[in-house]
Computed example of a mutant assay.
Amino acid sequence: MSSTIAPQDFLEQGVSVSSGADALKIVPHPHPALRRKAKPVTEINAALRRHVSEMFELMYAHEGVGLAATQVARPWRLFVANPTGEADQTDQQQVFINPEIVRQTGSETAEEGCLSLPQLFGDVRRAKQITVEAFDLNGELFTLELDELPARVVLHEFDHLEGVMFPDRMTPAEKTKADPKLADFEHAWRKAQKSGEIPDDRTLLKAFETFKL
């Protein structure tokens, strides 16, 4: 959630924290991975742990508080979060593997942003309190009861694993205000594809769905 990079600059920067063929990059809307439902994680190994570490680096580098695997074009059902957004507050960071939202109560509306939609913000109504179950990097199942911002972060990132983005949950009025910015993202993306800077959607989707550790 949240970023201050314009759509065209976001594409140009590449947004990576490492080099190599499998370097992680935050992908912007309308990358097709963002609309795919993530697959359950079946093995926790050294490679997955390295990817999770890089996801935290990316999240902090872009002043985010959560980042889902689909946002880095990885098909896994996992996300990382730290509601403080502070890299030095490691006691607040959490890895959610194969998460499930088992309870939602109350509701409140608050502004949200997204690292895959930099400079786009809008009000979204979500549950105020939730209970979430997930596995950690040690393969241990845990349960958390969260409210307010921590709950919102988890719900936002969980949506990503379902192929849902926060503008989908905006009110009609908020969505109308967001449409021009969404169109800018679409235009920048298609322009980059036309020039050959970015592969076509079919190629990107195949790479996403067949990626293996």
Rank of each mutant, 00 (worst) to 15 (best):
G14M: 10
G64D: 09
D9Q: 15
A87E: 15
M55S: 02
M59V: 13
Q8G: 06
P118F: 08
L137T: 03
W189Q: 00
R103H: 08
M55W: 13
L58D: 00
A151Y: 02
M165I: 15
H51V: 12
G85Q: 00
A23W: 10
V17Y: 04
E86H: 09
T203N: 06
P150W: 06
A61R: 15
P75D: 06
A188K: 06
L182V: 11
G196H: 12
T70G: 05
E133W: 00
D88A: 11
F135E: 13
Q92F: 06
P32V: 00
A110F: 12
E100Q: 10
A173I: 15
L67C: 12
R190T: 09
K177D: 09
E63A: 13
D184N: 10
V41A: 07
I5W: 14
V153P: 00
A69C: 12
D168P: 08
G122Q: 01
E54L: 05
Q71R: 11
L34E: 02
S53P: 04
V72C: 05
L141N: 06
T4C: 08
F10Y: 14
A23G: 09
A68M: 08
T171M: 03
I5N: 03
D179T: 15
A21K: 14
T203D: 12
S2H: 09
I5K: 13
G20D: 08
Q94H: 07
R202N: 07
R125G: 08
L161P: 14
I26N: 05
F135N: 05
V80W: 07
R50F: 07
D91I: 02
W76F: 14
G139I: 04
T90C: 04
L58N: 02
A207F: 03
D91W: 02
A151L: 00
L213R: 05
A134E: 00
E157V: 14
P28I: 04
P167T: 01
V15E: 10
A192E: 03
T42V: 12
T131S: 08
D22Q: 13
R49K: 15
P40M: 02
Q93F: 04
F208H: 07
P99A: 09
K128M: 10
A192Q: 09
P28K: 11
P30S: 08
L182M: 14
H51M: 14
V80I: 08
F135Q: 13
P172T: 02
I5E: 03
A38C: 13
G66M: 05
M170Q: 11
D9G: 04
K177V: 13
E140P: 00
L137I: 02
R125W: 00
R169T: 11
S116E: 09
T143N: 03
A178E: 03
V80S: 01
D9R: 14
E174S: 14
E57L: 10
F10C: 04
S16D: 05
L141S: 15
M1V: 07
V95S: 04
S3D: 10
E112Y: 07
A73N: 12
Q193V: 10
D88Y: 12
V102E: 01
